[in-house]
């Protein structure tokens, strides 16, 4: 085909659905990475700017929901409405860090679908690197999650908890929380773009997992909860993160590491599938 064209220029060929080739797609993605990153950053900046420009309280809105949620639980616990077992750190610190970390994770799960849907109208009209919408999601997450980490730091200072140098171990976990959530959102994205059910299901599912993970209360040592939490990947991330941040001993470093590695692999596969499947999605939900 290409010898028809006497040119050294870039040749683009569009054909019927080719076979799935991870290596070829991976190379394409690497080639598009720079423009995708630049565009994704620009779009994220645009949305953050726009969100805060039309708001009086601005960035404060990022703090209000987790603090209010935590206050509710602190109140429920201290008023003996519910009885939460003894926590190794002051309960307000436990619940605040738990809620904030969980929100990082939960937002990450919903983010891919949110970002790609927000770009749906241009997806169906212009050919730009599709990954930029995922990059947009990652930068948006990074921004919101950083704000949450700032609150955690504030909480630690208020309660005079000094985790020492091990706090640096939180840096990979911080990205790990986002990557884990993001990769889950990403593999559900192809179906989620077609059917609205996924977008409704995700918050519901995450709420369910929150109540069975050690977010608001510690996990009992025995019973169904304990058994389930031996394999609950979210538990390892939340618990390890909180223990590192509050200067406690970390029990499940290996499991946490495995979760992070698996998440990262899923992320890479998810990005490749995303690129491969995008034309089918646009065809069905176009414009």
């Amino acid at each position: 085909m290409s010898q028809d064209f006497k040119s050294t220029k870039k040749i683009t060929i569009y054909q019927p659905q080719p076979n799935l080739s991870f290596i070829k797609l991976f190379n394409e993605i690497i080639k598009d990475l720079k423009p995708a990153n630049e565009l994704g950053f620009q779009l994220a900046k645009r949305d953050v700017k726009a969100a805060y420009r039309q708001s009086v309280l601005g960035v404060v809105w990022a703090f209000i929901p987790p603090i209010v949620t935590s206050l509710i639980w602190i109140f429920l616990n201290s008023s003996n409405t519910i009885k939460i077992q003894e926590t190794p750190i002051p309960y307000p610190v436990f619940v605040l860090t738990g809620t904030l970390l969980w929100q990082i994770l939960a937002e990450s799960v919903g983010q891919p679908l949110k970002s790609v849907k927000s770009g749906k109208s241009i997806l169906a009209k212009l050919n730009f690197p599709r990954e930029s919408l995922l990059v947009h999601g990652l930068y948006s997450l990074l921004f919101n999650s950083s704000l949450r980490v700032l609150i955690i730091i504030a909480v630690l200072i208020v309660f005079q908890i000094n985790p020492g140098w091990q706090v640096l171990g939180f840096i990979p976990l911080f990205f790990g929380l986002m990557v884990t959530g993001f990769s889950i959102g990403l593999i559900s994205l192809p179906i989620g773009m077609m059917y609205g059910d996924i977008a409704r299901f995700i918050p519901f599912m995450m709420q369910f997992f929150m109540y069975i993970s050690p977010v608001i209360y510690p996990i009992p040592d025995e019973g169904v909860f304990a058994i389930f939490n031996k394999i609950n990947p979210f538990r390892f991330l939340i618990e390890t993160s909180r223990n590192i941040l509050t200067g406690q001993t970390v029990d499940y470093l290996l499991q946490t590491g495995i979760v992070l590695i698996i998440s990262f692999i899923i992320l890479i596969i998810g990005v490749i599938i995303f690129r491969f499947i995008m034309p089918v999605i646009i065809e069905r939900v176009g414009s």
């Binding site: 085909m1 290409s2 028809d4 064209f5 040119s7 220029k9 870039k10 040749i11 683009t12 060929i13 569009y14 054909q15 019927p16 659905q17 779009l43 645009r46 949305d47 700017k49 726009a50 109208s121 241009i122 997806l123 169906a124 009209k125 212009l126 050919n127 034309p279 089918v280 646009i282 065809e283 176009g286």
Partner: peptide
């Protein structure tokens, strides 16, 4: 424009491709 794939046939293009399809795409 490469947004969707053909079910049959081939499209071959040489050089940089631009599209003037929606003005103001990406405006906030």
């Amino acid at each position: 424009n490469g947004l969707i794939r053909p079910d049959e046939g081939t499209i071959t293009m040489v050089g940089k491709i631009g599209a003037l399809i929606e003005l103001g795409a990406g405006f906030n």
